[in-house]
Structures are given as C-alpha cells and as structure tokens.
Amino acid sequence: MTAWKILCDFDGTISVEDVIDSLLDRFGRPGWEVLEQDWRAGRIGSRECMTGQVALLELTQAELDKHLSTLWIDHAFPAFVAKARELATPIRIVSDGLDYAIEQILGRYGLDALPLAANHLAPGTPPRKWQLTSPFQAEGCRSGTCKCACVEQARQAGYKTLLIGDGASDFCAADRVDFVFAKHRLIEHCRHAGIPYVPITGFEDALELLPRLLDGSLIEHAAPAVAAAAR
C-alpha cells in the first residue's frame, strides 16, 4: 500500500486569520491595497504582490513579535499532527505566507519543527522595513511558493498526496494531488473541477477523516461523484 503525505496550507487553514493581511491592516503603508486588487484581478502573481506588500510594512522586530503573539491556530491542529504522527503520515506545511510568522506562531504550540515551504521574511534597510524572498518559487509559476512543485516532490518520493487548504493559493496544487480536505473557496474549486475532496470546517473534521482516508474507506464510501473522480 502506498503511503500518504499531507501538504497543508497555513493562512486561513491552520491559522484562524491570514497573517499578512493582519500585518498590512495594522502596519502597512498606503499602496498595499492596490497590489491586492491587481493580484485579485490576475494582473500580477502572488509573489509580485507579496514582495511589494512586505516592502510597505513598517514595524520593529518587537512590534512584529508582539503582533504574532496575538494570532492563533485551529484548536484541533495539534491533535491532528499527533494523529498523523501516530499513523506514520508525514506533514509538510506549504504556504505562500511568511516563514518567520509561521515558525513563531507554531512555536507557541511546540510545532515549529514541522517541515515548511514558505516565503522568507527578513529585516530590510533602513530599520522598520522588511523584505521578502521566495526560496520555493519555480520557473513559470507566479506564486512565491510553488505548491505544485511540492506535490511533485512528494510523488517523486513515492507518496500519495493529501492537500488541506482553503483558497486560491491551493487551486493549482489541488488539481495534482490524490485527495483534498477543502475549506472555504477551495470547496467550490474542487466541486467545479471534479477534484476528489471532502469539505471540512476545521481540523476536528480532518482528525476524524484522516484514518478513513488512509484505510481507503473514505473514498470507498464517498459520494459517487467524489469516488469516480478519485478513480
């Protein structure tokens, strides 16, 4: 039986709110909204959008850390990680968000050792400025983190892939994985594209569904359209 690997989005999936949005709302200088509109309209990719928006942040390291200390994750995610480990199923966080923020937030729960692919946030010059680089970008992909490349890496290692996500940054990868636990906008994308998925509201649902995915019963007893798509 082929083993599974979980690829999990962070912002809006693990985290209760989008980290970069919360930072821009509080510390962003004028102009970040225009970049957001250009990205939503498809005029620029998320990497260009995020790079520009991060350059418009103005805050100290202390202010950043204090703000991150107020952000929370889904209350059932630690239990989900524990269950995945019990079932020998590796998890990799794949995010178009900020590596430092993800590590700081997960660190409060003892989960900062989870493998992570995300954009790199670093102090810029002068002080109070920040810069973004994208070590997990891929040629031809406009995202900061190419989640499709992460899927391909897992497949090359011999895994089936489960994607857990919620929005537009997950659409492309959803087309390439073996199954999806979908929240919010990703539900509609999977439904319209005929992608095998189940809707979840959070990690309480994912915690219940994971063992059923791994033993095959989730797909076997899924709705006919989902089961057909999975085949």
Rank of each mutant, 00 (worst) to 15 (best):
L7T: 00
F10I: 06
V16D: 08
D18C: 10
D21Y: 13
S22I: 10
L35P: 02
D38M: 11
W39Y: 15
R43Y: 02
I44S: 01
T51K: 07
T51Q: 14
G52T: 06
L57R: 04
A62D: 15
A62E: 15
L71C: 11
H75S: 15
A76Y: 12
A76W: 09
P78I: 09
A79Q: 14
V81Y: 03
K83W: 04
L87N: 01
I93M: 05
V94F: 01
D99R: 10
D99A: 14
A117D: 13
A122D: 14
G124S: 12
Q131T: 12
F136N: 02
F136R: 01
E139Q: 09
A149I: 00
E152S: 14
G167W: 05
S169Y: 04
D175L: 13
D175P: 06
D175E: 15
D175A: 11
R176V: 02
V177M: 06
F181G: 01
R185D: 15
L186E: 00
E188L: 12
H189M: 04
H189S: 05
R191H: 14
H192F: 15
V198M: 12
V198N: 01
E204S: 14
L207M: 06
L210T: 02
P211C: 13
R212V: 01
R212H: 13
L213E: 03
V226K: 10
A227L: 06
A230S: 13
